[in-house]
């Protein structure tokens, strides 16, 4: 395939993905807006007013970056895992497998589809948060870079989950039992300074700690971890996820007999 043909194939996959989540927007875009509004009301306004300041910011200002990142992570992941597993389940993935579309284009198409949903939900949630607090941007470059890298990483993770999944239960196990606990324990609602030294050290094994703190640094200018270590970790995990996903596609594991 020429580069031009590969671009056409990529755009075809991306267009299909975007059309899919826009068609079912009440299941894909609306829930995050509603859930985050509830978080803002309960944790930000009601409970937050009694907590007071955290790291020099109101509690509402402190939790907003983490909540936006939470929406990006869950939406990037769930878009790819449900879409790719769905195409495996109804065998429509064969449409792609029999075509000359290179594997990296297939992966890129699905992953960028997931990233686009993550970013769209991030914009929606950010707009909702403006009803509750004033948002400043400390470093736009860090914000853009961390949002893009994070959604890329979790879209790839969703792809790997989809390849291994045998049924619909398998695509909800990881989000429910791994992703959600990691997000809640990733410093969305609290600063690492509040934890005893042992648990603060344990928390640093959680990749979501780096994601949330790097984004919080971009928005508020504060972070519990080094921003460079955060970028390094996310970059490393993204590279590993990309090469592992390509390995799965190239070997046809769970896709070809």
């Amino acid at each position: 395939m020429t580069l031009q043909e590969q671009y056409v194939a990529f755009m075809t996959i991306l267009r299909k993905e975007v059309k899919r989540y826009l068609r079912i927007w009440t299941q894909t875009l609306l829930p995050s807006a509603i859930t985050m509004s509830l978080y803002f009301v309960i944790f930000g306004s009601l409970i937050g007013s009694r907590i007071g300041e955290m790291d020099g910011f109101t509690y509402m200002q402190f939790v907003v970056p983490g909540l936006i990142m939470m929406a990006i992570v869950t939406n990037s992941y769930s878009n790819v895992v449900s879409s790719f597993f769905g195409s495996k389940f109804n065998h429509s993935v064969e449409e792609l497998l029999v075509s000359p579309t290179p594997n990296y284009v297939i992966l890129l198409g699905y992953v960028i589809g997931g990233v686009s949903r993550g970013l769209l939900v991030a914009i929606v949630v950010t707009l909702v948060s403006l009803f509750f607090t004033h948002l400043q941007i400390h470093n736009l470059l860090v914000v853009v870079a961390i949002v893009t890298m994070t959604s890329l990483l979790f879209a790839l993770a969703g792809f790997i989950n989809a390849v291994y999944a045998n049924n619909f239960d398998d695509i909800s196990i990881i989000p429910t039992f791994v992703l959600t606990p990691l997000i809640y324990l990733g410093g969305v609602f609290y600063s690492m300074d509040l934890l005893p030294p042992f648990w603060a050290a344990v928390s640093k094994l959680n990749p979501l700690v780096y994601v949330v703190n790097a984004f919080r640094y971009g928005v508020l200018g504060i972070s519990d971890v080094s921003i460079w270590i955060a970028f390094g970790m996310i970059g490393l995990f993204t590279a590993i996820a990309w090469f592992y996903s390509m390995h799965l596609l190239n070997t046809g594991k769970r896709l070809r007999q």
Partner: peptide, 12 residues
């Protein structure tokens, strides 16, 4: 859409 998408996968 099914037919058009398949054409896209072949670079049309």
């Amino acid at each position: 859409d099914i037919v058009v998408n398949q054409a896209g996968y072949y670079g049309l």
